[in-house]
Amino acid sequence: MNKNVLFIMRRAPHAGNHAHETLDAVMTVAAFDQSVRVLFVDDGVFQLKKDQDPAAIGLKHVAPWFQALRIYGVHELFVEAESLSERSLGEDDLSLPVQLLQRDQIAGLLGSQDVILTS
């Protein structure tokens, strides 16, 4: 059975290993041939900020984790436009190509899901 599963990323990077574990779950769900989508909202959009250099804080780069999503067949990445603009970010600041959604379009995405998991 194929289900629509949406993961919502709401947390900034470098705050524990939550994001990494969530991506493990994203990839596992994708490996079971479910329809997986990832939505970045709120501080979660900072995960995709390009040019991150965490060497000086002794932590790992997060960009490779997100780039690996493509290998697992997860191509539908959504970012809420207002979450970017509220953080002085634009689409050009992101490390991956994404689909932008306006805040009032989020309800439509949520309404078409069988399972919604947040992180």
Binding site: A107, G108, L110, G111
Partner: peptide, 15 residues
């Protein structure tokens, strides 16, 4: 937290 405010802004009629 702004969770409630942001949730209300993203919820659909009938939710």
């Amino acid at each position: 937290s702004r969770s409630l405010e942001l949730c209300l802004a993203r919820a659909a009629a009938g939710d």
